[in-house]
């Protein structure tokens, strides 16, 4: 038996492990994106301490004040402080973004993995359904489903799940078709492991990476589409502070009071930036792990 090169293996790998531990901290995109989102969440948790105003109570003697030292983002047509409303909306908007991506992701990964792993008629049925769902324009389908269920948060989640799962099913199936052929999956079969174990221990961990990376950019898109839904009056109902509905309510005043629309819009841009950076950073970290 030949002599294994212990020394070389040991040195390279100790270094490798240390590098691995520190890699999360070496991703500026990950740190900046995560920091940005964390700061926004913290600010919204401390909204009552940061700003003395009520996000909902109207003050009709103080409407349409421009941004200034008293009202940092100005006030809207009902005299509510816009900065306060933007802060209070962070949690709701992030919750909508995360949940409306999580539900379709779980559903899509499940159905797509099933299709890819089992093949045959299961694959045909699932993928043809995916084709049908992909053929509909996203917003048209969401609006139609909400119109059937009636406006509100729950029907918005249902609609976004039904409209969004097909992309994840495609990703999962594509990845599984590749990984199913990988010899380590064949090896797992040769080692007599059950289908469940092969699926959950050997295949799924190797396909979630692309799905997670896609999800990060998807959250941004979903927040944007929920804001357009609120804008259309189909999402979050007033007076609950939500960026989309704030923009919708400010639209008539865009020529005279720009801050009603622009500053909540800036909040959306910031969240989108944070999530994109987070997604990029995660992509680098998760991909180099392979």
């Amino acid at each position: 038996m030949s002599e294994p090169s212990t020394a070389v293996v040991g040195r390279v790998n100790d270094w490798g492990l240390r590098w691995r531990e520190a890699r999360w901290l070496q991703q500026p995109a990950l740190l900046v994106g995560g920091g940005l989102l964390l700061a926004m969440v913290l600010a919204s948790l401390l909204a009552k301490q940061i700003s003395p105003y009520d996000p909902i109570a109207q003050n009709l003697s103080n409407t349409l004040q421009p941004p200034g030292p008293v009202h940092w983002f100005g006030t809207d047509n009902f005299g509510r402080d816009i900065f306060t409303r933007v802060l209070h909306a962070v949690q709701l908007d992030l919750q909508i973004g995360v949940l409306s991506v999580l539900f379709p992701m779980v559903l899509g990964l499940f159905l797509g993995s099933l299709a890819g792993y089992l093949g045959g008629w299961v694959e045909t049925v699932v993928m043809r359904v995916v084709d049908v769902f992909t053929a509909f324009p996203f917003l048209v389908m969401v609006i139609a489903i909400i119109a059937i269920l009636g406006p509100g948060l729950t029907s918005m989640y249902v609609a976004l799940t039904l409209a969004g799962w097909s992309a994840y099913a495609r990703i999962a199936r594509g990845e599984i078709l590749v990984i199913k052929k990988a010899e380590y999956v064949q090896a797992a079969r040769a080692l007599g492991f059950s289908n469940l174990r092969i699926m959950f221990r050997h295949i799924l961990p190797n396909i979630v990476t692309p799905a997670i990376i896609f999800a990060m950019s998807d959250i941004v898109l979903v927040i944007l589409s929920t804001t357009s839904l609120s804008f259309l009056g189909l999402g979050v109902q007033p007076p609950t502070p939500e960026w989309g509905s704030m923009i919708a309510e400010g639209r008539p005043f865009i020529m005279t009071a720009w801050w009603l629309v622009t500053l909540p819009g800036m909040a959306i841009v910031l969240v989108g930036l944070g999530l994109s950076l987070l997604g990029d950073g995660l992509a680098d970290v998760l991909r180099t792990e392979e």
């Binding site: 797992a188 080692l191 007599g192 190797n206």
Partner: peptide
Amino acid sequence: MQGMRRKLQIIFQDPYSSLNPR
């Protein structure tokens, strides 16, 4: 057959794809 797999094993060609990277 699962029991029989204990007696029959395989070594694969490509050492880069035959081990689960995770």
